[in-house]
Simulated assay, not measured.
Amino acid sequence: MDRSLHSLRELQLLMFGMANSNLADIYSFLKACRCPQLERLFVQLPTNTYDSFTTNYLEVAEEEPPEGGLENLWSAKMTNFKGYRNEIRLVDFLLRKASCLNKLFLIAPKEVLPQVHRKVHSEALPHFLKTDVSRLERASVTAQIIFDESVSPQSQPLHSEVFVRI
Rank of each mutant, 00 (worst) to 15 (best):
D2P: 06
L5G: 08
H6T: 11
S7P: 00
S7A: 13
L8S: 04
E10H: 05
L11N: 11
L11G: 05
L13I: 15
L14N: 13
F16G: 15
F16W: 11
F16S: 15
G17A: 14
N20M: 10
S21F: 08
N22Q: 15
N22F: 09
N22G: 13
D25M: 11
Y27C: 08
K31F: 09
K31C: 14
A32G: 07
A32Q: 15
L38S: 05
E39H: 08
E39L: 04
R40E: 15
R40N: 14
F42G: 01
V43G: 03
L45S: 07
L45Y: 07
L45I: 06
T49S: 11
Y50K: 10
D51F: 03
F53E: 15
L58S: 14
V60P: 01
A61K: 13
E62K: 08
E63I: 00
E63S: 12
E67Q: 13
G68Y: 11
G69Q: 11
E71Q: 14
W74L: 08
M78P: 02
T79W: 10
N80F: 10
Y84F: 14
I88R: 14
R89V: 09
R89T: 11
L90D: 02
L94R: 02
R96K: 15
A98Q: 04
N102H: 11
K103Y: 09
F105C: 03
F105P: 00
F105W: 06
A108N: 09
E111F: 05
L113V: 03
L113G: 01
R118A: 10
K119S: 13
H121D: 13
S122F: 02
E123H: 04
L125F: 00
L125I: 05
H127R: 06
H127P: 00
T131C: 03
E137Q: 08
E137A: 05
R138Q: 03
R138Y: 01
A139Q: 01
A139T: 00
A139L: 01
A143C: 07
I145D: 05
E149D: 11
S152G: 08
P153M: 10
P153F: 07
Q156S: 09
H159Y: 12
S160E: 14
E161L: 04
V162W: 02
V162R: 07
F163S: 10
V164F: 10
